[in-house]
Design a protein around this nucleic acid. Structure first.
Lengths: 191, 191
DNA sequence: CCAGTTGTTGACTAATCAGTTCCTAATTCG
DNA sequence: CGAATTAGGAACTGATTAGTCAACAACTGG
C-alpha cells in the first residue's frame, strides 16, 4: 500500500555505484547523486537513508556483480591457468579502455581505510577471491595442471595481491606492454 | 628582507604529507591543515598558495623520502634478491603496524586519477622504481645471481605491480601470513 | 469514496568548505 | 629612525555541504 516508487531502486544503486567508482566517496556530493540518479533529494534520503548507506549498497553491488562473477568463473574453470591469465588480461583491457575508473574495491580499500564497514566488506570480498583461487588451484594441482609441490593457498594469496597491484598500475601507468609483461611473469609463477 | 617566517616550511610540508597520507586529499580540510601544521590560515595560503599546491608538495616530498630511498638501496645492492625480499617484508611490517596509512603513492593514484598533475607525479615515480629494479636485476643477471634467460625489465614491471598490490592488501587485509606468503611467491618468481 | 500509508518534491537549515582581506608585527636597507 | 617589504592572524566571504521538512500526490483496503 501507499504510493509506489517511481524509480527502479536497482538502477539507482547502479548509477550511484558508477559515480562513487569514478569519483570516490568524498568527491561525490549529494548533489551529484541527485543529478546522476535523476531522483529528488528527499526521495533519495527516504530510499537510502544517507550517503554512507547508499555507498555501502553500491559497494555491495559492485562486489556481487564483479567479484562474484570472477569467483563463479574460477569455480567452473576446467583449465585453471588459462582462465586466470584470461581474467588478468581482461582487467588490463578494462583499465586501458578507461583508466580513470580502476577498481571500486581498490578505491574503497585506499580511500576508506578508516571506515570499518567498508574495510570489512572489502576484506570479505578479497577473502572470497582468495578462496576461489585456492580452490581452483587445488583442483589444478590434483589434476596435474600445476606442479604437485606448489601450495595452492600461497599461490592464491600471491595472485590476489598481484591482482590489486594490476588495478593500481592500470590507473597510475596505463601502458599495455607494461601490464601485459607483469601478467606474463605473474602467471609464469604458477609453473 | 621583510618579516622572517616563524615556522619551518619543511616541517610544515612533512605534517601536511602525514595528514594527506592518512586521510586523503578530499577528506583533509583546510581547517585540518591549519590545526595540524600549527599555522594560521592566512600564513598557510601565503606560503603554499592553495590546498592543491600543498598536496603536490607533500606528494613530491613523499616520493623523495620514500621512493628515492628504495631506489638508492636498489642501486647500491650487491645481492639483489635478498634486498628485494627484505624491502617487501619491510613494507609488510609497515602495513601491519599502521594499516590505515598504506602508501601515499597508491592513495594518490586511486583517489586522484582525474587530476593530471598527480597522475603524472605518480607515474613518474613508478617509472623510476621500475628502472631501478630493472637495473638491479640486470646486474644480477650478468653476475649469475638470477637465471640468464630471465628478462630484467619484465621482472621489474612485474615486481613494481606486485609492490602496489602489496600496499593495497596491507590496507584491505592486514594479515601477516597472507602478506608474507604473497611475498614468498613473488620473490620465487625471480628464480 | 474515504482513511491510511507511503513516495515525491523543492525549499530550507546549519555547518563547513576553500580562499580572501586587512590590519598588525617583524625584519632589512638606507 | 623610517620607508619598504614580508609574515601572522582573525574576521570575513560566498559557495557548497549533508541532511530535514512540510505540503502534495498516488496508491490500497475497507
Amino acid at each position: 500500500m501507499g504510493r509506489p516508487r517511481t524509480f527502479d531502486i536497482d538502477v539507482a544503486v547502479d548509477r550511484a555505484m558508477e559515480l562513487f567508482w569514478r569519483q570516490g566517496f568524498e568527491a561525490t556530493s549529494t548533489e551529484d547523486l541527485v543529478e546522476g540518479l535523476g531522483i529528488a533529494r528527499g526521495s533519495l534520503y527516504k530510499a537510502f537513508g544517507s550517503k554512507e548507506q547508499l555507498y555501502a549498497m553500491a559497494l555491495r553491488r559492485y562486489c556481487q556483480s564483479h567479484a562474484e562473477g570472477l569467483i563463479e568463473l574460477l569455480d567452473r574453470a576446467e583449465q585453471v591457468r588459462p582462465v586466470i591469465q584470461a581474467v588478468l588480461l581482461e582487467l588490463v583491457e578494462a583499465d586501458l579502455a578507461d583508466p580513470e575508473r580502476g577498481c571500486l574495491l581498490v578505491n574503497a580499500a585506499t580511500e576508506r581505510s578508516a571506515h570499518p564497514d567498508t574495510v570489512q566488506q572489502v576484506s570479505r570480498t578479497m577473502g572470497q577471491i582468495e578462496s576461489a583461487l585456492a580452490g581452483a588451484l587445488e583442483r589444478a594441482r590434483v589434476s596435474g595442471d600445476i606442479a604437485a609441490d606448489k601450495n595452492p593457498r600461497e599461490l592464491a594469496q600471491f595472485l590476489t595481491t598481484f591482482l590489486q597491484g594490476l588495478r593500481v598500475m592500470g590507473k597510475a601507468r596505463a601502458d599495455r606492454v607494461f601490464l601485459e609483461n607483469a601478467v606474463k611473469v605473474a602467471v609464469g609463477a604458477l609453473d
